[in-house]
């Protein structure tokens, strides 16, 4: 191409951009945008402190409700308070991480409606990354903190015969859970390509999901447990691995080894959510709405 403006250096950087892995590029763009939002947030410090506290408090309420329940009963669905706290803390920490990383995807419908999604499509970064990093809200650390505190309390009080495998299960469970919830966020966002006003459906699976997982599976009807095991694999966030750690039987009678599946389930669910996202974006680009 006859080109008198671009220099040899530019040509080299064009070559360079070909072999860069898309994953790395995406993470880099995510980091860049997140840094901008964090600085924006810090221009309103008082507001940030207030909302971070609110984020912490509102999640703490759920646990206070559980504490109040246990002031009336010793067991809930056959589980003691430390055991429920273990489930609660694990679900809360996983969800908090996913919410921090991907929670902003629930604004996709709004962006489509006001037309600002288009401005993201003309930038050299994956749209999903830009949507996820949009309005990155550090206040969501409040939720993670609260989840980890409850998890800490649970680990200190729950009666578990610890083995190295069980110890390793804890970080594996939290991280895989966060990835599963992230995939839920992405799938929910993809759904908003079709129904722009339906952010609440996403909430049912994200906020609703974490509320569900805070309680023992024995509390719920078998069909519901089957649904969140085989259809939307939320049970792999904390129930199945945590039941293994606590030496408890799964109400569906699944074998022990399913407790080790969360990383695989997370990967598979990510692939499904990614496909849904791609289909949604393709639909948007062909219909413009």
């Amino acid at each position: 191409m006859a080109d008198d403006v671009r220099t040899a250096g530019d040509a080299a950087s064009v070559e360079e951009e070909r072999w860069r892995s898309p994953l790395w590029e995406g993470l880099r763009a995510y980091g860049l945008i997140v840094a901008m939002w964090m600085r924006s947030t810090m221009t309103y410090r008082a507001s940030f402190a207030m909302t971070a506290f609110g984020n912490f408090a509102v999640t703490a309420f759920d646990f206070i409700a559980i504490l109040m329940m246990f002031s009336h009963v010793d067991r809930l669905g056959g589980y003691s308070l430390p055991e429920v706290a273990f489930l609660y803390g694990a679900a809360g920490a996983s969800f908090g991480l996913a919410d921090l990383a991907m929670g902003s995807t629930d604004r996709l419908g709004r962006r489509i409606r006001d037309g600002t999604l288009d401005t993201l499509l003309v930038r050299p970064a994956p749209v999903l990354v830009q949507v996820a990093a949009d309005r990155f809200a550090l206040r969501r650390l409040g939720r993670i903190t609260q989840g980890l505190l409850v998890l800490g309390y649970a680990l200190a009080t729950v009666d578990i015969a610890w083995t190295p495998v069980k110890v390793a299960m804890i970080p594996m469970m939290i991280l895989s859970g966060a990835v599963i919830f992230s995939a839920v966020f992405v799938a929910g966002a993809a759904f908003q390509f079709w129904a722009q006003d339906a952010a609440e459906v996403q909430n049912s699976f994200t906020y609703g999901g974490t509320t569900l997982l805070q309680y023992p599976p024995t509390v719920f009807a078998k069909d519901l447990v089957r649904g969140v095991t085989f259809v939307v694999p939320l049970a792999f966030v904390n129930w199945l691995p945590a039941l293994y750690v606590m030496d408890r039987d799964d109400p569906l009678g699944l074998p022990d080894w399913v407790a080790f599946l969360p990383p695989l389930v997370a990967a598979g669910f990510c692939a499904v959510a990614g496909l849904a996202w791609r289909a949604g974006l393709r639909g948007y680009r062909s219909t413009g709405s």
Binding site: V73, V219, A221
Partner: peptide, 10 residues
Amino acid sequence: YTYIALWEQR
């Protein structure tokens, strides 16, 4: 479901 678990006990 959580209330059912609670009221079964009390």
